[in-house]
Design a protein around this nucleic acid. Structure first.
Lengths: 329, 329
DNA sequence: TTGAAAGCGTTACCAC
DNA sequence: GTGGTAACGCTTTCAA
C-alpha cells in the first residue's frame, strides 16, 4: 500500500503539500497539483483512514445498533440508514444487541474505540444512560427520549387507526396484544388502540406478549386462541405476530376475515404475500432509516435542525384479513 | 477520553509498561501491574483501537458484503457471522452491494482503508478480480470459487431433492424457475433440478427469472401462470419467489397442494407461517454464517484449516405445499 | 523489570 | 506556495 510519503517522493514535494491537495486546503500551485495527482494515480494511492482518524479523532464510520436484524422490520430500516449514509461517504458498523444491555454497551464501546462519528440506536432499553456521556451525536430510531433526537413512527395513532378500523369492520370481541413492556414502540401502539377502543365504547381483551421473535410468535398465537377462543378480531403488535396468528387461525379452521379479522403492524414486505394478504398499519421503515441518517449527518456537520424529534405518519393498509367497511363508515 | 499517558502518569510508570500489561506481553512486576490496573480502573481507560490499528496495520474489524439484507435469507447469514465474530472480539462493517460492482468495490475499498482484518463476501459477481490483490483473507459465503475459501450450501443436491420430491408426490407438469444467471447459488439449484428431472425421465418447463427482489417476485408469479397455466408443480429458486407464486395461485383460485405443488428454497423464517406452510429446501443459513466466520478467523490466525471449501448439507422440509408421498416412495 | 524513543500515516501549524 | 515538524495514541525494540 502506497503512503503519502511515497506520493511526496514521486512528485518531488513534501508530504505537507500532498496533504494539501488531498484535502483541498491551503494554496498549492496548479502545476504542483497536477504533478501530485499524477503520482497519486500512478501509485494508486488511497489515504489511510485509520491515520486520518487517529489525528482527527473522527472516522467516517457510524455505529448502528439494532435489536435484531432477523426481525424483518429492521432490514428495511437499516437499508434506509445505509443508503443515506453511503451518499455522504459514511459507512456502518452494525451491532445486534438482542435486547441485552451488555451487548449494547459492548457495541457502544466498540464504536467509541473506533472513533465513530455518530450513533444511531434502535434498541429498546428504557435506560439510556450509556448514551449520555458519550460526547457523540446520537439519534434514536424507532423510539424516543427527551434526551436525544429521534425518528419514530406515530405508533399511538397507528394503534388508534387499527382499533377504529377493526371495530368499524364489525369485530365485536377484539383482542389487543400488548407487546413487550420495555418496547416503547409496542406500548404506544397498544395505548393508542386502548384509547380508541375506550372512545368507541366497546369491550376488548388484552393479551400480554413479551417478545417479537419468530419462535415465540407461534406460542402467543396458540395461547391467544386458548384464552380467547371466541375472539373475532385481533390487533397484533407487529406483522410477525400477526402472521403467526393467521397461521394458527388457519390451523384451527377459522375463516379469515369472516370469523376473525387481523390487523398487524409494520407492513413488512412479506405481509402482502400472506394468505389472505395481511391488513396492517404501515410504518415507513426505509424512510425512517433515511431520516435518522439525515438527522445524524446534520448533527455531525452542525447544521441547524428544525426538528429534533421526527415523527413519521403511519397508514392503514387495507388488505384481506379485514372485511370491507360497512357503508356508514 | 483517557489515554495511555494518563494511565502511565497516574500509576507513576512509563507508557511502555502500561502497554505491556495491556497486552500481557513481556515482564512486569506484580505490584506494578496492580498499580496500573488500578489506574486503568479509576480512569475508566479503554485503549484506542484506531491508534492500535495504525501501528499494527490490523484492526479488529471485518468486512461483510451482502447482496441485500432485505432478502430474508441474509439476516440469518449475517447474524451467524456476527455472533461468531463477537465471540472473538471482532466487529463487522456491513455493506449491501445491490449486485452493483461499483458499490462492491467501494466497500472493499473502505474495508482496506479501515484496516479490516479479513473479508466475508456473499455477492454474486462472477468476476472476483477485485478480491485478488487484497493481501487480506477473503472467505466467500453462499458462493464458491477456486481462488478463495468458501462456505456454501449444496444447492445442486437441493435442486435434485426438490425435483425428486415434487415428482414422487405426483406433479406431472413441473415448471422449474431458473433464477438470475449470474447467481451461482441459484444456478446450482437449477442444474440439480434439471439433472434429476432428466434422470427421472419426466418432462418439465423452464421459466427464467432474473431477480430475487420482493417486487419482482410478484411479476414472475403472474408470468408463470400466463405462460404455463396448466403447470401442477413449481420448483422456485427461493422462498420469496415461492411465496409470491403461492400468493398468485391463491388469487387464481388454485387449491394448494392439490392443483399445484410448490417447493421453495432457503427455509426463511416466515415460510412456515405461509398458508399453506411452504415445503422447501432448507439451507442452514445461520450455521453457514458461523462457519464462514470460523474459517476466516482460522485464516487470520494462521491456524491450519483442513477444509477450505465447506459445503453444508441441505434438507427437504416437508410442509403443506406438497402432497403426501405415495406409498412406493 | 522498566523506560526512552522510533514509528505507524496523516494533518496542521509555523516558517520561509 | 511550500516544507519541516509536532502531534494523534499506541506498540515494540533496545538499552539500562
Amino acid at each position: 500500500m502506497a503512503t503519502i510519503k511515497n506520493v511526496a517522493k514521486k512528485a518531488g514535494v513534501s508530504v505537507a503539500t500532498v496533504s494539501r491537495v488531498l484535502n483541498n486546503k491551503g494554496y498549492v500551485h496548479e502545476d504542483t497539483r497536477k504533478l501530485i495527482n499524477e503520482a497519486i494515480e500512478e501509485l494508486n494511492y488511497k489515504p489511510n483512514e485509520v491515520a486520518r482518524s487517529l489525528y482527527k479523532k473522527k472516522s467516517r464510520l457510524i455505529g448502528l445498533i439494532l435489536p435484531d436484524i432477523r426481525n424483518p422490520f429492521f432490514p428495511e430500516l437499516s437499508r434506509g440508514v445505509e443508503d443515506e449514509m453511503q451518499k455522504h461517504g459514511f459507512r456502518l458498523i452494525i451491532g445486534n444487541a438482542d435486547e441485552k444491555l451488555e451487548k449494547e454497551s459492548d457495541y457502544i464501546h466498540t464504536f467509541k474505540q473506533n472513533n465513530v462519528i455518530g450513533i444511531i440506536s434502535a434498541t429498546n432499553h428504557r435506560d439510556l444512560s450509556h448514551y449520555d456521556d458519550l460526547s457523540l451525536p446520537v439519534v434514536l430510531l424507532d423510539r424516543t427520549s427527551d434526551k436525544h433526537p429521534s425518528v419514530s413512527a406515530n405508533g399511538f395513532d397507528g394503534g388508534r387507526q387499527a382499533a377504529r378500523e377493526i371495530v368499524r369492520r364489525g369485530s365485536k370481541r377484539v383482542t389487543l396484544l400488548k407487546g413487550p413492556a420495555e418496547l416503547q414502540a409496542a406500548q404506544n401502539r397498544f395505548k393508542g388502540a386502548v384509547e380508541e377502543m375506550c372512545t368507541l365504547n366497546v369491550n376488548f381483551n388484552v393479551m400480554v406478549t413479551t417478545s417479537f421473535a419468530f419462535d415465540d410468535a407461534e406460542k402467543w398465537a396458540k395461547k391467544l386462541f386458548e384464552e380467547y377462543p371466541d375472539t373475532d378480531g385481533v390487533i397484533a403488535s407487529n406483522d410477525v405476530v400477526a402472521a403467526a396468528i393467521l397461521h394458527e387461525a388457519h390451523r384451527l379452521g377459522k375463516s379469515i376475515p369472516n370469523d376473525l379479522q387481523i390487523i398487524g403492524f409494520d407492513d413488512i414486505p412479506l405481509s402482502k404475500l400472506l394468505f389472505p394478504p395481511l391488513s396492517t398499519i404501515r410504518q415507513p421503515a426505509y424512510e425512517m432509516g433515511r431520516e435518522a441518517a439525515d438527522l445524524l449527518i446534520k448533527l455531525i456537520t452542525n447544521e441547524k435542525v428544525q426538528e429534533k424529534y421526527i415523527q413519521m405518519p403511519v397508514e392503514f393498509m387495507e388488505r384481506q384479513t379485514t372485511r370491507k367497511a360497512e357503508e356508514n363508515g
